[in-house]
Amino acid sequence: MLKMRVIPCLDVKDGRVVKGVNFADMMDAGDPVAQARFYDREGADELCFLDITASAEDRDTLYDVVRHTAEQCFMPLTVGGGVRTVDDVRRLLLAGADKVSINTAAVARPEFVREAAQKFGSQCVVAAIDAKAVEPGRWAVFTHGGRRPTGIDAIDWARRLAGYGAGEILLTSMDRDGTKSGFDIPLTRAVADAVRVPVIASGGVGTLDHLVEGIRDGHATAVLAASIFHFGTWRIGEAKAHLAAFGIPVRN
């Protein structure tokens, strides 16, 4: 039976982790490779790096980070943030990323998703959707960290992205992101039920019950979280034990 995935996400800026675990036994909490090794040992099912580097010149540092991580951690690695061209995708995959997440660039030019999927295969294309409620039961796609509205319906957009060849959808509720009040379950379920590809729920995790809700009620097959793991509130093993206690299949 397929196991539901727990995916910690690390924010990386200029090659350093700006939001990550900080346990006493960790020599350098800002080192992405050390963080990746930590989560590898913890039994995370995948790892996600979100590059929040402002300038394009500093992108080379990211490739080094991905390269060193992939050489030491034998687990799936997704890298997102600022992926705009087929060449960006190629460079990340060559550095050792297994999947690349595409967000704003897909809104600007949806064919980009199709080109990336045709060139490198759907298995490595994760389409990221940042959505906000605009009226009850309706969500719209936003870009630029949730600041810029696009007017595109999130459910329609998810269907289109899957049609373009995205292998997975990473769905973030911008209303919930950073609030620790739980996933936007109606949004997650509406998207997950609308597409055949797997949906990763993101945005708003504050408790282990939220992870359960994302899978059981939101119909996601993976849950992504940052702060509940990084600040040591819970460890990966505890999250999985909690999911298992609710009858959700997890890998131990």
Binding site: M1, L2, K3, M4, R5, D45, S122, Q123, G167, E168, R196, V197, P198, T221, A222, R251
Partner: peptide, 11 residues
């Protein structure tokens, strides 16, 4: 209900 692609850890 099972998604395509089959992505993730399986026994």
């Amino acid at each position: 209900v099972l998604k395509i692609p089959h992505i993730g850890w399986n026994e």
